[in-house]
Design a protein around this nucleic acid. Sequence first.
DNA 1: ATGGTAGACCTTCTA
Length: 259
Amino acid sequence: MKIATWNVNSINARLDHVLTWFREASPDVAALQEIKCVDEKFPTEAFESLGYNVAVHGQKTYNGVALLSKYPMEDVHRGLPGDETDEQARYIEALIAAPRPIRVGGIYLPNGNPVDSEKFPYKLGWFERLNARARSWLALEEPLALIGDYNVIPQPRDCYDPVAWAGDALFRPESRQALQALTHLGFTSAVEARSPDPHAYTFWDYQAGAWPRDHGIRIDHILLSPQAADRLLACEVDREVRGREKPSDHVPVIAVLAD
DNA sequence: ATGGTAGACCTTCTA
């Protein structure tokens, strides 16, 4: 089973680019972030024609997440529990009804910049809610994948210039610590476990020639519960996609689990 | 050199 995550930076501005990749890579399950549209504007039929079931948690202009699955999806939850006042569409989860079922959470974690604004505590609070959700799912000891744009650079080697990123919400100790705390609940990072690339960047800014200079960062992650990690065969970052026409600033990350 | 790009949407916010 191929499980993918991709921040597409507007699904409708990038539909041809995204569909081309889906035809090539043909993931069984995919989580999309930053669809930047309400549910009714999501191109559901285009994905259905490729054989996917579609679950969307959209929002006007900003954020928005979706799950696509070749298998039926059950027990779909939209929004991260723990704060009824949170109106940002950043989380969707479903039980993928494959022959060996797996629960998948699609994550678009808040950016958190600037750190002296309310956005940084929002990021850390969101992380606490995510970790609480993860803890309760892990207690079931079932296959689970929490995948998406975490907006966290885990280690200095995961960015081209750690000094340039010091102080940024994506690299602040509080952010890295929250990701580490989540991982230490019992998750395996698929990229760290299986990617041959020691850097494995997943994002290159549109500005300042970041892509041609390979000024990237690794912020899109696939975290697997022990029952899912036991089946991990391979993981890759599809960086070639960044060099195509009209790309997203993120590229897909794919994990392959034994069926 | 404090720049630069992209998307949604309508003037500025988010990333």
